[in-house]
Amino acid sequence: MNKFQKNRSGIKSWLNPWGYGIERIAYWLMRITGIGLLIYFIIHIYETSSILDGKAAWNKMLELTQTTEGHIILMIVIGMSTFHAINGIRIMLGHGGIGVGKPGRPDYPYLPKSQNMKNKLCIYAAIGLAALAMLYGAEIMFSE
């Protein structure tokens, strides 16, 4: 069976968040921020392990974070962690069946109750708070 016959949408299905509402965008952002935070975590371990090479090595490593590029990366990390944490709480509650609506006879045009306003507001709040946290972080870092 070749790839055309298998007809799987594959990883491009993860990469394209458009066309299925804010919930699919939240799913996409959750993946992107999760991968981003994992990469940051690995870099962070490498960064902090420099202290094993003495004070001079540690200070040299810290200098890298005090550049404009370093500040921008940290700003992105702040945004990623804020969104991932808040949206993560929404998803954890949702996974337990909390806040996903009550079953009942559906009426046309069949708006799904699992994608109710509470869920949408949580996603918008996660995006908004991530943006605010980034701005606050930028204000502190760039005003030094």
Binding site: Y20, G21, E23, R24, Y27, M30, I91, G94, H95, G96, G97, I98, V100, G101, P103, P106, D107, Y108, Y110, P112, K113, S114, Q115
Partner: peptide
């Protein structure tokens, strides 16, 4: 299932699979 919710968005009969799956997982959790 990562609760992307697109299944419920495209269902032509208003079944809302995302809701059912989260309820089902609620039993396991």
């Amino acid at each position: 299932c990562h609760f992307a919710g697109s299944c419920s968005k495209v269902c032509p009969k208003g079944v809302d699979p995302a809701m059912a799956i989260q309820f089902l997982r609620g039993y396991l959790l």
